[in-house]
Simulated scan of single mutants.
Amino acid sequence: MDWLIAIFLGALQGATEFLPISSSAHLRIAGIFLPGAEDPGATFTAITQIGTELAVVIFFWKDITRIIGKWFQQFSGKADRQDPDVKMGWLVIIGTIPIVLAGVLFQDLIRDQLRSLWITATVLIVFGLVLGAADLLGRRIKTLETTTYRDGLLIGVAQVLALIPGVSRSGATVTMGRALGYQRPAAAKYAFFLAVPAVFGAGIYETIQALREPTSVGLGMGPTILATVVAFVVGIAVIKWLMAWISRRSFLPFVVYRIVLGTLLLVALAAGWIDAL
């Protein structure tokens, strides 16, 4: 049974990680319907996200390897410090600092209190409305090449909110990008780049912890690894679809989905059909 659950949760992770609807919220909600009604947990979520971020690396392989190469070449004088790829390397580093600090300082809070379904339902709705407003009112003129260090840091600060199930990493960073006036594809692409070091770092850390304490992963390491592989495969397909979608359409369907899901969750909690923890 654990292996079937792992396949389901891995597919769910891959399908929701890049959409602004919060993969951690969906995994948290899915836990209600699993045998024993167990929350998959922050450790399981962090490890399976390695699969989805590997999908990002594969999909944007040329961009990522070029950025890394140029960033290192600046120190040998082979690349100009004003080169857009060198700048993007620094932007990703600067934007990653806030979530690293928050992850270290508030680890216990992230693992326990913030996983209440009351919080998940509320932020699904609230940040859905914020995303809708930012997407509608954004000036839509800035491109990835014009990203400033100030904007990169602000988007990085927004990424910190993704530690709360229901916010969504892509949702928070894209919302900030749109609010700052970036085009949808530019905001999404920077969000993808920014997530790579943070997610890989968290995933590797949680994997090491899980190897030391196997009981911290509810499904066990075998099923969790399977879920990570499934998340990778599904994630690649979703990235391709999403980049095509936002080049022509708005985020409105995701906003509506977040509000409906959050509302249904609040009703279920208020009626006592499900437990918050």
Rank of each mutant, 00 (worst) to 15 (best):
M1E: 15
D2T: 14
I5F: 04
F8M: 14
A15K: 11
E17S: 05
S23A: 13
H26D: 09
R28D: 14
G31R: 00
I32N: 07
F33K: 08
F33W: 14
D39M: 11
G41I: 05
I47L: 06
Q49V: 07
E53S: 10
E53P: 00
V57T: 04
I58G: 00
F60V: 03
W71Y: 13
K78D: 15
K78N: 15
K78R: 15
Q82E: 15
D83L: 10
P84I: 02
P84T: 03
P84M: 05
D85G: 08
I94Q: 05
G95D: 03
T96Q: 00
V100Y: 01
L105R: 08
L109G: 06
I110D: 04
R111T: 10
R111D: 12
Q113V: 15
R115G: 09
R115P: 08
L117R: 12
T122Y: 13
V123I: 14
V130W: 13
D135L: 09
D135K: 01
L137C: 01
L137V: 05
G138C: 02
R139E: 13
R140F: 05
K142H: 13
K142Y: 12
T148G: 06
R150T: 13
G156Q: 04
V157W: 09
A158D: 11
L161C: 10
L163P: 01
I164M: 15
P165Q: 08
P165M: 08
G166F: 11
R169S: 11
S170C: 08
V174E: 10
M176Y: 08
G181E: 06
Y182P: 03
R184A: 05
R184K: 04
P185W: 00
A186C: 04
A188P: 01
K189T: 14
A198E: 00
F200D: 03
Y205C: 02
T207M: 10
I208A: 13
I208G: 08
L211S: 01
P214V: 11
T215A: 15
L219K: 08
M221Q: 12
I225D: 05
T228L: 13
V229F: 08
F232W: 09
V234Y: 12
I236N: 07
K240I: 05
K240E: 02
W241E: 10
W241S: 09
L242W: 12
L242K: 03
A244D: 14
R249I: 04
F251T: 07
V256N: 07
Y257F: 14
L264R: 09
L265C: 08
L266N: 12
L269T: 07
A270E: 14
D275E: 14
